[in-house]
């Protein structure tokens, strides 16, 4: 169980390899978010956060996932600073005995992270910089986990 907020990049493969040997895991689900790099997409993405609250919020989200599912390991990494198209933004991972818990926990981590962890994205485009608006669909996705 770990959360990391960092400027530097991470290696999804290395992180996954470290988790796959944990406990009695028979399933490992990872998700990573990447700065979109297609034509018409952003030139760069600035990630701002609230130091202190960010780590506390991520730890709370991870603890909630561990309370709901029987996980042998979990990990949340989120980068901050200026990121270029194609670069990693963040990753979550959930390991469990069986795939259902691992899939569900990874999705839960993402849904809660998007709506409860204090990160803000600003896109740099040829027309200027703009703050990314929160999406109602993200709130709806998080709400479905409400007990």
């Amino acid at each position: 169980m770990a959360v990391r907020v960092q400027e530097e990049d991470f290696d999804l493969g290395v992180e996954a390899a470290a988790l796959r040997g944990s406990g009695d895991a028979g399933a490992l689900v990872t998700f990573s978010g990447i700065v979109r790099g297609g034509e018409g997409d952003v030139a760069a993405m600035m990630l701002e956060h609230y130091p202190g609250m960010t780590e506390a919020a991520l730890e709370e989200i991870e603890a909630e996932a561990c309370a709901r599912w029987d996980l042998s390991a979990s990990l949340i990494i989120h980068r901050v600073g200026r990121l270029m198209p194609g670069e990693n933004i963040m990753m979550v991972a959930a390991a469990s005995r069986h795939r259902k818990a691992a899939f569900e926990a990874a999705e839960f981590l993402m849904d809660y992270l998007k709506t409860r962890a204090p990160f803000w994205k600003k896109e740099e485009t040829p027309e200027g910089a703009r703050w990314v608006d929160a999406r109602e669909a993200d709130d709806d996705a998080a709400a479905r986990w409400a007990k």
Binding site: G33, Y50, K114, P118, F119, W120, V132, A134, D138
Partner: peptide, 10 residues
């Protein structure tokens, strides 16, 4: 006390 827009991480 901190003020901010809705969060947009992930």
């Amino acid at each position: 006390v901190a003020f901010f827009p809705p969060m947009t991480g992930g």
